[in-house]
Amino acid sequence: MGYTLSKEQFETLVNRLSEQYQVFAPVKFVGGNTFTDVDVIRYDQVKNPEEIVLDQKSDYSFKEVLLPLSETLFYYTEEQTKEADIPRGEAVVFLRSCEMHAVKVLDDIYLNNKFEDYYYKRLRDKIKFIVIACPESFDSCFCVDMGTNKPEGQDMIIEQQGDQFLVVNENPQWEAYFEGYAKVDQAPSYAKENKVKVHIPENLNPNIAKSSIWEEYDTRCIACGRCNFVCPTCTCFTMQDILYSDNGKAGERRRVQASCMVDGFTDVAGGGSYRKKFGERMRFKMMHKVYDFRKRFGYNMCVGCGRCDDVCPEYISFSANINKLEEGMKEVGEEHA
């Protein structure tokens, strides 16, 4: 059961939510992309409901709301530390079905991978999710094959239908927002088909490292890490210590998002590093997304949003890479050496 809202009523709804929550949504930053006069769509706190971009996929994912690109953990002096304040209060985030599935991935790593992450949890505890329904798939999406096309666990789903909005509320606390609105018996749409199809071979195993399918990426990839930074499920970070004074006796420790594609990701103190070749980094990322994570948590990490394809300056397609795995396994065989 849902409600049909006019555009005005929808904006009223967002405004009412804004009274109680900080509302985050994909927003257009005019001229904010790499090239001259090209816009970028990324997440920001919404000041006006009209800013919310509903008809395009955001270039950067919602994850920045839960995992800021740069997050201060604590401040220190010589012998004392002081935890950083939470950067925001109660929040609502507009996201898509694939990203709703990515929330589960972030939760498993940050809450269920042996330790609970204090900083993630305090932001996670104060967030509600509104899914922007995708009646049609975007060009690079492959959510259907990754099983993430139907949203799960959200508080609300909205679907723009011409001048109107179908709104399905799944959070009982929000029912008050809909008093007086007529109910309709309509379920929100979801993408039932993608142009891009992927197949992860059942026999995939770490032997794939020996395949020649990775070699092309040694020269094609430039190890810039864009694929990781836009990915809603990439969660790696690096610690930074920032000095406030020359003598280094006061400062702050931050964590910033990190990329397994970028140089230095594996550097150890003695000067050693792993995966020097970019093809090896592609393989590492690929295996995490469609194999390693599944071995650990029971389902695939990649949610098929296709942002990595959209952003790659070298036109490397992750989904095309997935579809090479089968050939790769034929080449190397399943037996571990």
């Binding site: 001229g31 904010g32 790499t34 090239f35 001259t36 690109l69 810039c224 920032i242 998002q257």
Partner: peptide, 30 residues
């Protein structure tokens, strides 16, 4: 301190930093 600092005298405004930034930390001036 883990952030890029631009020498404004040297900078020729070519935009390589913007083009190569993977996070949109660097953007072009309006």
């Amino acid at each position: 301190n883990n952030k890029p600092v631009r020498d404004t005298e040297k900078c020729i405004g070519c935009g390589e930093c913007v083009i190569n930034c993977p996070t949109r930390a660097w953007t072009r001036s309006k």
